[in-house]
Simulated scan of single mutants.
Amino acid sequence: MRVIVAVSLIIQIVSGARIQGSIALPGPDICGGDVVGHRIVSGNNQVIGSEFPWLVVVQYRPPNGGDLLTPCVGSLINQRYVLTAAHCVTAYDMGRPVSVRLGDNSTRVGAEFVILDIEEIYVHEDFTRSNFLKDIALIRLKSEVSYSKNIKPICLPSTVGQLRLREGHPLTVAGWGLLNDVPSTNRQYERVTYLDNDQCRARYSQVDIVVDPSHICADHSRDTRCISDGGGPLMAYHNGVCVLHGIMAFGGRPCGVKNLPDVFTNVGEYDQWIKKHMWP
């Protein structure tokens, strides 16, 4: 597996056929399904059955060669590609990303899932770890995944039409996350709301952290839960399907810091970048 920091030279040598293949994103008839709309904005926080079937666990081989670690997640966007955060695939102290786990509701031993090896990773060429700017990466799998009830892609904003988010708009995060700062073994989801960037920036200025216009913020009312994992999805229900609006970059810690919203990379800002780095 190779980790590739995409630069302009790489983009220039991409063939016409490769670029044509980059637009092969599933439409609403395939992506973003198997999520009951009313449960996205209400109800219990534990994922039931095949909800959020695009959630992917990224598996890392630690530097000491021990058991695989799972500190980050991603979102399946077609049969070959997963979107995640750049900080998840460039933090080599966590180890080397080697595979992904799909169709998994639980991290417990004995859970049913599919494991696919990673072929390549494309990291945004302008990613900045110090402030999580351009915090986006594309994982190419070594082979195509077969869709099933528990494995399906999420829709990107460009495939269903842009949704203009306004203050307080209901959104959803999902992942395994933490409960009382202990990793959860079950997949969970949480209702959050869109927070205007100006307000988000003002809150984080109190702790000297910069929120950029390319970020998207989500407010929460949690107490001791942190549902979002690094690289996890921020989703909106739009035109009957679930749409990926953000990729988890950072948030207030420890869990329960109510004044600090979660901050995500705004996926809509990177539609062309994503398509340029996808190939059949």
Rank of each mutant, 00 (worst) to 15 (best):
G16F: 15
M94H: 04
R253K: 14
I216F: 00
L83P: 03
V182Q: 14
S221I: 13
G103Y: 05
Q46V: 11
Y60W: 12
N239A: 14
L178F: 15
A236P: 00
V263W: 01
Y92V: 15
E167A: 10
N150K: 15
D229M: 04
P97V: 03
E51I: 05
R39I: 06
V123T: 03
R164Y: 10
F127D: 00
R80E: 05
Q59L: 15
K276Y: 14
V243R: 03
C155G: 12
C155Q: 05
G240W: 02
C226P: 00
R2G: 06
G252Y: 06
I118L: 03
W273V: 04
P153Q: 03
L171F: 08
Q12C: 11
P62K: 01
V5K: 06
R39A: 04
H124T: 01
H238Q: 04
G175F: 02
Q188W: 09
Q199M: 09
I4W: 05
I77M: 04
A85C: 10
D208T: 10
Q59N: 15
Q272E: 05
N239C: 08
A91F: 13
V109D: 11
P97R: 00
H220R: 08
V82W: 01
I151N: 04
V5P: 04
C31K: 02
S22G: 15
H124P: 01
F264H: 07
M94Q: 11
W279V: 07
V58Y: 01
I154N: 04
N197Y: 02
A174F: 08
S228W: 09
V211G: 08
V57T: 13
V257G: 01
V114L: 12
V257N: 03
R101P: 11
V207Q: 12
P261V: 04
S146A: 11
H124I: 05
V257S: 02
N44T: 13
V57H: 06
G16T: 14
F113T: 04
V207E: 11
R203P: 02
D271S: 11
G231A: 06
V58P: 02
N150I: 15
F113L: 10
N197H: 09
R2T: 12
G27C: 08
T128C: 12
N259F: 13
G16W: 14
K134T: 08
G232S: 06
C72Q: 01
S8E: 07
P183N: 09
I19E: 07
G252T: 05
N78I: 02
R203T: 11
S75K: 02
Y60Q: 06
R39G: 00
V35P: 00
L163A: 10
H215R: 07
I216E: 00
N78C: 06
P261H: 03
D93E: 15
L133Y: 10
L195N: 05
A91P: 02
H277Q: 14
V211W: 01
C200G: 09
L116K: 11
I274E: 00
L141R: 02
R203L: 12
V263I: 12
V14T: 15
I19T: 13
H215N: 14
I136F: 05
D198M: 09
Q12N: 13
A24V: 11
F52Q: 01
D117Y: 12
G37T: 07
V210K: 06
T224R: 09
A174V: 13
A249E: 02
S184L: 04
L133M: 09
R18C: 15
H245C: 14
H277V: 10
S158M: 03
L25F: 10
Y81F: 15
N44H: 12
D29Y: 13
D67Y: 05
V35L: 09
